[in-house]
Design a protein around this nucleic acid. Structure first.
Lengths: 188, 188
DNA sequence: TCCAACATGTAACAAGTTACATGATTTG
DNA sequence: CAAATCATGTAACTTGTTACATGTTGGA
């Protein structure tokens, strides 16, 4: 993988507001999780490291009577590091790994009758994901189709959601086109 | 990551023809590298492991006078494993990691004048990649737009290339739309 | 004859997953 | 009062990257 992306993902989230490890884990289940994610086990060790490196600081927030929730905020150093990272220009496009596409490349080893099964499974998964994303979009931006009035924070969210939605729509479109070719071939 | 995807990527490639570690490394720079890839260092250790596990077998092919090229082929076990893996149904869609989208989510921390710089850099990278993919497409499928006559092996290649091309076109489209919004906002 | 591409490997390290482990709080 | 969710952590292991290391072959 690339150089400490999780570090910057965490710094970026903390730049919006103070969060606990659990909060960060939850964020990765929402919009930004479409483009980066991590399990809680990885997040807790990264937070520990970031704290040691003084990129973030910690304080306790009581949740109920006994539960000490550990909250984190950016330090000056952390803010500086985030800002520098955000301005870095990518040198090349990394492989966007996709197991379904990989499988399909080996099409000749898949029995003909199984091919539509694989496609339909993928269509189902992608359609469900698209619904989830569209719900998220309505929830945050409602019927409002015009993003011109949004502030910078909301606009970041808007871009990421529209990106994820167009990615899934494009994926589904390609699946349908390809399945069409498969069906026409079979009746050759 | 998921369970030994590299193993199956290698088995799949070897199912097309016998290859050396170097050949496999080269394949990951072409079409299939859009959806899965690995460095030679990882490939050589995986080949060693696959050989020990009897999923592949090895023989020597002289390349020149001294150079012993190590060729690998699938064993019966390897073929069986590949076939089973190809029929597995995905249970969920994995995060397709994208650093540019991640950065953009943190838009509010990017100075306004730097935003178009980031977009233009990404547009350049994606446009270059699209050109590469279209060249690959012409090379393999020429002016021929009709895939109905292709055999299973060529069709797998066709699907993967059209997938990669539509992914990049869609990406560029979203970049242009988003940059448009940015420009309109600035002159608000 | 030089240089790019061909060819193969190991070591150290970083990143990511799965499983184990425990306890508190909220909601029905 | 039970179950779901909130909340935090560690250990073992797998996967992936970067750097180190070396030698051959083909073409300009």
């Amino acid at each position: 993988m690339s150089r400490r992306i999780l570090k910057y993902a965490i710094l970026g989230l903390l730049s919006k507001e103070d969060m606990s490890g659990y909060d960060i884990t939850s964020e990765f289940k929402k919009a930004i999780g479409q483009f980066w994610s991590a399990k809680h086990s990885q997040i807790y060790v990264e937070l520990k490291k970031l704290l040691e490196e003084n990129s973030i600081s910690q304080y306790i927030k009581m949740a109920g009577v006994k539960l000490e929730k550990k909250m984190y905020s950016l330090t000056t150093k952390g803010k500086e590091e985030l800002r520098n990272w955000l301005l870095e220009l990518d040198k090349n496009v990394e492989t966007e790994k996709d197991i379904f596409a990989l499988r399909l490349y080996f099409l000749k080893d898949i029995p003909t009758e199984e091919i539509p099964v694989l496609f339909n499974n993928q269509l189902k998964l992608r359609t469900e994901k698209l619904s989830f994303l569209k719900e998220q979009f309505s929830f945050h931006f409602g019927g409002e189709k015009n993003p011109l009035h949004l502030d910078a924070e909301a606009l970041g969210h808007y871009f990421v959601l529209t990106k994820a939605i167009s990615r899934e729509e494009n994926y589904i479109n390609w699946l349908n086109k390809s399945l069409d070719i498969i069906n026409k071939q079979e009746s050759r």
